[in-house]
Computed example of a mutant assay.
Amino acid sequence: MTARWSDPGCVTVAEGVHRIPLQMPSDGLRAINVYALETDSGIALVDGGWRRPGTYDEFALALAAIGRQPAEVHDIYVTHVHRDHYTFAVELRRRHGARIHLGSAERPGLLAVGALGSNVPESSLRELLRAGAADLATAVRSDTLDEPFDPLDWELPDSWMDAGPLAVPEHRLVAVHTPGHTKGHMVFHDLDRGLTFTGDHVLPTITPSIGFELGDWDLPLGRYLRSLETMLDDRDRTVLPAHGETGVGLHQRVRALLAHHDRRLEATRAVVSEAGPCTGAAVARRLPWTRRDTPFAELGTFDRMIAVCETLAHLDVAVDRGTVNVVSRDGIDLFSVR
Rank of each mutant, 00 (worst) to 15 (best):
D47Y: 05
V13Y: 02
R321G: 14
G322W: 07
V174P: 02
N119E: 14
S124R: 06
A313F: 01
P151I: 10
H101I: 09
T12Y: 00
S124K: 01
E310A: 14
T311L: 03
T196E: 04
P165H: 05
S26T: 13
H261V: 09
H243A: 10
H189L: 11
L195T: 08
P220A: 07
S142I: 05
V120I: 15
L232N: 05
L250H: 00
A105W: 08
L152W: 11
G103I: 12
R141H: 13
L334K: 04
A133G: 10
T39A: 08
D236V: 11
V34H: 03
D57P: 00
G16H: 04
S123W: 07
R172P: 14
R93L: 07
V78Y: 00
P53W: 08
L102W: 01
P295L: 04
C278W: 03
R68W: 08
G180S: 10
L240D: 05
R130M: 10
N325T: 14
C309I: 14
L102P: 04
N325K: 04
R304M: 11
V248S: 08
H101N: 08
R255I: 04
E147L: 15
E274C: 07
D218A: 15
R68F: 06
A256C: 04
T144V: 10
V90R: 12
G222W: 07
A134W: 05
G42F: 08
V13L: 13
L173E: 06
